[in-house]
Nucleic acid binder design. Structure first.
Lengths: 334, 334
DNA sequence: TCCGATTATGTAAGCCCTTACATTTCTCAT
DNA sequence: ATGAGAAATGTAAGGGCTTACATAATCGGA
């Protein structure tokens, strides 16, 4: 079943069929409906490959994310996919892992597949050194590249970020102003947003005269590292160093801190405050419920898609958009 | 940059270039390397659309899942995507939501895009009535359809399921044998696997002479419903009906039960046992950690892909594969 | 050395659309 | 009624690849 069959059955030329298929202006109402009818009757659907060959697009955008089973990234992928499809685009998903090499090969794969744009979901896609970000610039030379939770000033790259610095700064300040002087900071990533968060924490601590480098510790989100973190706290405790506040760059770490505090029978939040990040489902599941920073993921995604669609439509679009987060106060902070 | 440019620069015909591109047998080693070299030099990549048009495939499979931000489904999508890409296939992701109508339109979309196969990730894709499953049979008439955690006996549909009945049956029996006589059952879905789980519970309860229809309650995983569930327990309690065990079809519900029990100051697991399902991250985050049934998602996904690849390669493959689950014992059961 | 069988390469016909350009059909002001 | 301009339709040339078939090169055995 091809366009020829339809054109024949409808008694028109293939060009006319193609025109009604593509909603072209210059078709009389009469022939349009005639063609539409026969298309309906025959249950014809145009061949996507031939269409792609002619139009040089198949209305597909590539989504790259390190690990779509990470709850936060999963949410991001979900929102992005939904909004793309609502606008007639399909999503080619690539879970790249965290290695640069794999990211590059995934990106090349997407370019080969001729996607219309690429979305890098997650701040782990940009690196310290500019040379390591070359793969993004290279892709952007061909098609628009969208960055979620990361920013890069390169032509044809568009960044949508939440203001992690301010969110973390304000939350830290609140905790300090509540009288907690020894606020530990646990982070699990040195990605773009990971750094912003740390900077926000550090700035607030410095303003409050509480800053000490030793307060900051890195722990990956892995099971082992989470235990390591808890051991770390316990060790401090045994040495008589008792902390009263923990800020984590991620709800998972925050939850681990809560769990530790409960094992030690600290009262939360009276004697021990914990702040998480991402306002994930974990925050609800925790007991007491976890205070966490919500960085408005859906809003970010919505905006990202809006900008991408604008770019694809040939419009001039802002290179960077920044959104505010929000502290969702629950039971682990005063 | 087309195959013509390469053929010219390499001094061969386009057919030869195409042959080396497709790893055809009949090319002398000398010309192969010559062509490969010029391809390398020119940085040429074949046009995927033209390729698709010629071969009538673009090595893409569609993944449908109701909601890729659901932790369990997110994991499934992740594993599937990984394993597909490791085998040279790309993943077109469609988050369909839970409405039949939307599932059908997503499916048609994937068919239009000429994917090589469709994976339905999650048991919510099959319905009670056969007529409602027609969309699956229709798709299977065109391309292989893979079912994860669901089964349907239709040509060209392949089912990969975990033995939820047995898992739930055995777990329930264990709890009953531990002396708990009043085991509530909370479920959040009447999907294929949801029913199997319930049946497993029911069978074990009947065998133990403990079965009562009133023990079974439905609660969706939404925030409101989770509170409703906790209210439900409280109401029972206030009427002097005190339960000592809860089995949930999902970790989220199980967690809510744990939280409730803690608020009531029941001792877990001495006075109150809870069993979850899926062995999700939530199970670790819970305090005490949640006993949960692991249905070996990665194994299922691995097998699913193996079968799909076999089918696509034209081999005869088993229509249904069943895997055993495992009870992961943690702190919420004796 | 020569011939048939292999193996390597080339030619050209699709695959199914889109679209520039050519042609025909309307419209409507004169 | 008529001709210019607009609107509708048709013709045909790609788009970049695969592959059946034709042809040329190579090989091995008698």
């Amino acid at each position: 079943m091809t366009i020829y069959d339809i054109s024949e059955k409808a008694g028109v030329s293939i060009a006319t069929v193609s025109r009604v298929l593509n909603g072209s202006k210059n078709v009389s109402e009469k022939t349009r409906s005639k063609v539409l009818d026969t298309i309906q009757q025959c249950g014809y659907t145009p061949n996507a490959f031939a269409r792609g060959l002619g139009l040089n697009t198949m209305n597909t955008v590539g989504i790259m994310c390190a690990d779509s089973s990470d709850p936060y990234l999963a949410k991001a992928v979900y929102h992005i996919e939904q909004k793309l499809r609502a606008n007639g685009y399909d999503s080619l998903l690539c879970c790249t892992g965290y290695e640069l090499e794999d990211k590059i090969s995934s990106m090349n794969l997407l370019l080969t597949k001729k996607v219309d744009g690429i979305i890098l979901a997650g701040s782990n896609f940009i690196y310290e050194k500019d040379t390591e970000n070359k793969y993004i610039a290279d892709a952007a030379a061909q098609i628009p590249v969208m960055l979620l939770n990361a920013a890069l000033d390169v032509p044809n790259v568009y960044s949508i970020v939440s203001d992690d610095f301010t969110s973390m700064h304000d939350a830290t300040l609140q905790m300090a102003q509540a009288g907690i002087k020894d606020i530990l900071y646990f982070y699990n990533s040195s990605s773009y947003s990971g750094k912003k968060k740390l900077e926000g924490y550090k700035a607030a601590m410095q303003e409050s005269g509480l800053w000490l480098p030793d307060l900051v510790q890195f722990f990956s989100g892995s099971r082992e590292d989470i235990h390591a973190m808890q051991e770390h706290l316990k060790t401090l405790d045994e040495r008589g160093i008792r902390f009263h506040g923990v800020i984590a760059s991620d709800d998972i770490l925050a939850l681990a801190a809560v769990k530790y505090a409960k094992e030690m029978h600290y009262r939360i939040p009276e004697d021990f405050s914990v702040l998480g990040y991402n306002n994930s489902m974990l925050a609800d599941c925790c007991d007491p419920e976890l205070t966490s920073i919500d960085n408005k993921l859906e809003t970010l995604c919505q905006h990202l898609i809006t900008i991408l669609l604008g770019v694809l439509a040939g419009n001039e679009m802002p290179k960077k958009a920044v959104f505010s987060g929000e502290i969702i106060k629950r039971g682990t902070t005063r």
